[in-house]
Design a protein around this nucleic acid. Sequence first.
DNA 1: CAGTGGTCTAGACCACGAG
DNA 2: TCGTGGTCTAGACCACTGG
Lengths: 266, 266
Amino acid sequence: MPTSTQNSPEAVPADAGASAAFENTAPAFSPLYQQIKTLILRSLQAGEWKPGDMIPSEFDLAARFRVSQGTVRKAIDALATDNLLVRRQGKGTFVATHAEQHIQYRFLRLLPDTGSLEEQGPAERRIVECRRLRAPAEVARQLGLRTGDAVLQVKRVLAFSGAPAILEELWLPGGPFKGLTIEALSDDKGPMYALFETQFGVRMVRAVEKIKAVSADEDTAALLGVAPGYPLLSVERLAFTYNDEPMELRRGFYRTDARHYRNELS
Amino acid sequence: MPTSTQNSPEAVPADAGASAAFENTAPAFSPLYQQIKTLILRSLQAGEWKPGDMIPSEFDLAARFRVSQGTVRKAIDALATDNLLVRRQGKGTFVATHAEQHIQYRFLRLLPDTGSLEEQGPAERRIVECRRLRAPAEVARQLGLRTGDAVLQVKRVLAFSGAPAILEELWLPGGPFKGLTIEALSDDKGPMYALFETQFGVRMVRAVEKIKAVSADEDTAALLGVAPGYPLLSVERLAFTYNDEPMELRRGFYRTDARHYRNELS
DNA sequence: CAGTGGTCTAGACCACGAG
DNA sequence: TCGTGGTCTAGACCACTGG
């Protein structure tokens, strides 16, 4: 039945026997592997497998979805290029995670002008502020909330070898991040996104950044150790979980005297 | 024989009969589809098929390389995700091109803050300068030339609806671009990379950008219609042809008052 | 050694585009 | 109607990892 030509989207049963009613009007054709991809995605969202876990083998999934191994493979391939899964030959396929993934700061594109990331050493983090407040209109709009909904605001400075490099301000929806405290943030080692995963079950999947050049205002200048008016990179990031649900709005000011934002185009 | 397990890299004959000496030491294993990908890439570099051309069908290539259609397919898939080929169902597979590709400015990430690209209208281009000179050390280094080698320098301003937005300065290696004149550049409609393709057979394949925030100096400020000291995005782009050969160094200053540099992370 | 992902094949059939 | 790319299958074998 999966062999059927009349594939209506989402017609593949996850587990049960075979009997998907034929749609006589099937304008939207969706390939099987796409449907399988969606089903796997659902399991990921539902938390059936947690970040870092190994998912069932291709053959197991093929049996479960009643399709061939090759079809499951195409679905997993797609999820792997989306960075949701990671394949490891000889071991298995794993749910991607921000933790234990040696590349710290997966979304940070700021690199030292000279020298490597390693010799730069780890970032020193200082939380400047962390409070609960009602979402301003613009923040609410971008996070898909209503104006006045509860949000968390976090402000912090990142420094390398004692030299401040980034000042950033985050807004997080109050619901999913209920219970996040300044202590948890301060005590934490490792990427913030890793903490979001382990403590709140929120996994960031992709993000969009809008970059501008701005002049430092007085407060920002003071925190970054530059003169007011100093040119800074303004990086506004909206990060999404599964299903393109916005989960974090972040506005960063980057010093770019000894560092640059690197981007690859193709 | 392509079925052989003892695949030594590059061992697949393009056309001739079968007789690849078995390497008894074969530490580097390269899958067949990778080798096919390399062979297709060579044909692209050699100009066997020009930008915009349709390449032979998957079955034809499979016959030519003595492998199955599925293997050719994987090779083409890889080249397509690298943006070197474009598949069009029902028509064929084509060599990617910067021309006739409705997205003008494939590498330009500057978008209007409000409204769409369409309502912004086409960019107005004004060549400020175009001259031949000896490469400064830094330019030579990045382009893989020797200091003092001939390079072309072009300086131009891009404006939208009469408002200047970008000032950029380009360096091109003198050899491949012999004969490029200010007239050709000024007369040209369409993306500069399209002109490079059609007139010089140089196709840009990927690029790396380094972005910083800077203050406008007097000259730059005047050309962009802002006050000196105004914060600008400095975008340094190194663009590559096939084989990761650097072919263009470009330094742009972007006004970001009504526009932003957009980047997608995943 | 067994179990996992990775490669390759051969063949069937579908969707799309153009004559 | 034909030729192209797109999907799906079934099965064989290889490469890597770990017990």
